[in-house]
Amino acid sequence: MKFCKKYQEYMQGQEKKLPGVGFKKLKKILKKCRRNSSSQKPLHASLAAKTCPDHCPVCDGTFFPSLLNEMSDIVGCFNQRAQKLLELHLASGVRKYFLWIKGKLQGNHTALIQEGKDLVTYALINAIAIRKILKKYDKIHYSKQGQLFKSQIQSMHKEILQSPWLCELMAFHINLRETKVKSRKAHALFDGCSLTFKDGKPALTCELFDSIKVDIDLTCSICLDTVFDPVSLTCGHIFCYICACSAASVSIVNGLKSADPKMKCPLCREGAVYEGAVHLEELNILLSRSCQEYWEQRIQTERVERVKQIKEHWDSQCRAFVGV
């Protein structure tokens, strides 16, 4: 079965109307563009050029803007729903008990797990759809405009695989895997997520029906160890909280929100990535259970560092207050 059909079947199978990639519409635009270019130029000339015309009215005016809007909607919807779902799961205090009682009355625990699974599938299938349509664009135009657009989208943080919530949902799915859920056939597209260790390096792996695999590396590139108290910057790179604070030249007390907007990501050198950093709580739970010995050892060393930084912070505060 062609991916286009699979994708449409999946989107129609959704109970709630979710934003998606207008595959048929975009394909029509590309066909129209192909007709236009073939009518304007002889075939050999267009092949010789091997690039999309500088000002292709179809591409500039319709294809990319509509794809950009669709991508924005998809990422927005995914982030919103994922955040809401994880808030329910990670609630604490009185709210936790209130939600627990509410859940018992409504029996929505399994629904919660199923929604998590569906959201991961939704993210991955849309990521593939976007990749496929951009490949088709490049194939038709003999260009690399599609790839260029993809990199621009990444810098705009509209790439769904960049979302920290995807990583959180994958961890959430592993954390609650013991609960057996009768998944609907329409949504049984991915074999599930798993935490794998390749050469001692941890990674979140998720395989989708189309033999497509998503790997999220969980090694902090600053301390070269498994991420501890992980935090995802807005560019999508994951680091230990302490490492991220050190890279941003801020103390743990002040936190990443107080980082200078000029500070860049230690991996991709993108600016202003610290302010919108997300604490990956589910991933933290998963890793703390998967490598307990390491976690306990790391807690000891982190505690020393945190106490030291807090002490320094309050010393400086006292000195400032006294006027020394």
Binding site: I174, N175, L176, R177, E178, S194, L195, F197, G200, D225, L286, R289, S290, C291, Q292, E293, Y294, Q297
Partner: peptide, 15 residues
């Protein structure tokens, strides 16, 4: 050896 041991002492993924 300690850092390698943590990889081998993986606990199952069930909560």
């Amino acid at each position: 050896q300690k850092s390698d041991a943590r990889v081998q002492n993986l606990k199952p993924d069930t909560r």
